[in-house]
């Protein structure tokens, strides 16, 4: 079971501002989903290698060759606050 503190912690980890009612609903829903996911514990997987790729491809690499870049205005075309060729962000308060 996860409690409110866990939910708040996870929301902070992933930068989501949740309202009080959202936090509460999230707690309930996550617990109900996790209860289902916990059925996984019953599956015997000792000595079973995890699969992180469904295909058995290995060693895919590219040659070290420079390719064209985006023009700067294109790189910044979607920026919410472009400033003189840079991406502007509000002040950073160290956590």
């Amino acid at each position: 079971m996860i409690d409110r503190k866990d939910v708040e912690h996870v929301a902070r980890l992933t930068r989501l501002a949740l309202t009080e009612p959202e936090l509460e609903r999230m707690r309930e829903q996550l617990n109900s989903i996790l209860a289902h996911l916990d059925t996984l514990r019953a599956v015997p997987t000792e000595g079973v290698e995890p699969t992180s790729h469904a295909v058995d491809v290995v060693n895919v690499m590219r040659e070290d060759e420079p390719a064209p870049c985006l023009p700067r205005d294109v790189a910044l075309a979607n920026a919410p606050d472009p400033s003189d060729g840079l991406f502007r962000v509000p002040r950073i308060i160290e956590e």
Partner: peptide, 10 residues
Amino acid sequence: LETAQASLVD
């Protein structure tokens, strides 16, 4: 960093 009202990313 402490006084900046904004930062810029390159």
